[in-house]
Every structure is written in structure tokens, then in C-alpha cells.
Simulated assay, not measured.
Amino acid sequence: MTPLALTPPALEPVSLAEAKIFLRLDQSAEDDLLATLITAARLMVEAASGRLLVDQAWRVVIDRWPDGGEIRLPLSPVSAITAARVYDVLGTAQPVAPGALQLDTVADPPVIRLAGEVPEIGRPRGAIEIDVVAGFAPTAAAVPALLRQAVLRLAARWFEQRGDVVGRDAEALPAEIMTLVAPFRRVRL
């Protein structure tokens, strides 16, 4: 199973204005740098938490329909299936009927269940593509406060402590950031 990002979120979970207030910045000379750091911090928090923060379009590519009829998604949370297609032996995309796939948004990780007739696959690799919307919501207000705070604090840390701090943080996030992210990580038993 391969997840592919199709479109980034329309906005970040922390605005440039919020970050500037947090950092007590009055000037706009470094707005581009700070905006880049906010995006990088979001990506790090998403990776550490295993959750996508603001709605974004993703495509999940699989080789064949699962035997048990359930596809456990590598993305979380997922709010909608926007399209699905299967490639036949000629390489032509055949659409999957909307009711043939059911999304269980309560399951963690989210699960897509086969609920109807689906086209036959026609190639051995990458035969099925399912497009989904992943994220807590389209607006930053719906992102859990702890995850927003982790993005804000990480971007501020990188802004204030420029240099090799980003390289060290890429290996392991600072403890105070991981504490904010911890409640959202999926635990394996």
C-alpha cells in the first residue's frame, strides 16, 4: 500500500499572525522564513503523531482487493472517499461505484470495507487507487489544541535557535514537543 499526497492543506494549523504574536515579532522581514518553519513543523508533528492535521487530498494505491474485504488505511483521520478506480488489463481506469466502498471513520486506523461489486483488477501492481480526504477538518480551529501548540512551539524553537538545532530535532523531536504529541500517537500492544 502506497499513500501519495495529492494536494497540501489549504492552510496551516498555525497562522503566520499567531506565530508572530507568540514570538513577539512586529516586523515582516522574516515572514517567509517563519511561514516555511510553520510548514516544516506541521510536517514533523504529523510524522510524530501519525495524524494529518488540516484536510488534504491523498491517494492510496494498492495492488489487489484484500481477502478479508478490509483496507486499513495508513492515514488518520480520514473523513471521506472522494474517488476510487481500478485499472483493467488494457490500463484503462474503471470507476468504483460510490456505494461499493464504505469508510469507517471511527476505527483507528480508518478502515475501508468492500460493500458491493468492484471491478476486476487487470495489472499486478498499483491496480487500485482510492482518493481520500485526510485531516481533522478543513480549518485550523478543528485541529486539537495540543497538536497546534506543538506546531507553534516547534516553529518558534527553530526560529529562535537557528543553526544546527533543526538537524538535531529532525532525529528526535524535543521532549516538550513529544509530550504534546504523545496523546495522539497510535499505541501498539
Rank of each mutant, 00 (worst) to 15 (best):
183 P>M: 02
141 A>R: 08
65 W>F: 12
56 Q>Y: 07
28 S>K: 05
11 L>H: 09
109 P>V: 02
46 E>C: 13
96 V>A: 09
61 V>F: 06
148 R>W: 06
144 P>H: 04
173 L>M: 10
12 E>I: 00
30 E>C: 02
100 A>F: 11
183 P>N: 05
102 Q>L: 14
46 E>I: 08
187 V>P: 00
94 Q>V: 15
52 L>S: 14
152 L>W: 02
52 L>G: 13
87 Y>S: 07
51 R>S: 12
45 V>I: 14
127 A>P: 02
111 V>H: 11
60 V>G: 03
5 A>L: 15
118 V>P: 02
145 A>D: 08
162 R>P: 01
179 T>K: 12
89 V>D: 13
69 G>A: 11
94 Q>Y: 04
115 A>C: 11
32 D>E: 13
72 R>M: 04
105 T>C: 09
11 L>W: 00
104 D>K: 10
141 A>I: 05
3 P>T: 10
182 A>F: 11
56 Q>V: 06
30 E>F: 07
173 L>K: 10
187 V>D: 02
75 L>W: 12
107 A>S: 15
101 L>F: 07
27 Q>I: 05
129 E>C: 04
49 S>Q: 03
118 V>E: 01
170 A>K: 10
18 E>F: 01
53 L>W: 10
25 L>C: 05
109 P>H: 00
109 P>K: 01
116 G>N: 03
180 L>V: 12
101 L>Y: 04
133 V>K: 07
90 L>T: 12
187 V>W: 06
91 G>F: 05
138 P>R: 10
41 A>R: 06
78 V>G: 08
128 I>R: 07
164 D>A: 14
129 E>R: 03
124 P>I: 09
84 A>L: 05
122 G>S: 04
121 I>G: 13
35 A>F: 03
81 I>S: 03
181 V>E: 00
48 A>I: 04
46 E>Q: 15
131 D>L: 05
70 E>A: 15
8 P>W: 09
47 A>M: 10
161 Q>N: 13
161 Q>P: 00
126 G>W: 03
133 V>C: 05
38 I>L: 15
133 V>E: 06
108 D>K: 08
157 R>N: 08
122 G>C: 04
1 M>Q: 06
26 D>H: 03
98 P>N: 08
141 A>Y: 00
133 V>M: 13
23 L>F: 06
127 A>E: 05
179 T>I: 10
35 A>T: 14
50 G>Q: 11
171 E>I: 09
132 V>R: 01
71 I>N: 05
23 L>R: 03
149 Q>C: 03
121 I>E: 04
48 A>D: 12
77 P>Q: 06
42 R>H: 06
171 E>F: 11
48 A>K: 03
59 R>E: 15
188 R>D: 04
14 V>E: 08
180 L>H: 11
132 V>D: 03
73 L>H: 10
152 L>R: 09
92 T>N: 14
139 T>S: 09
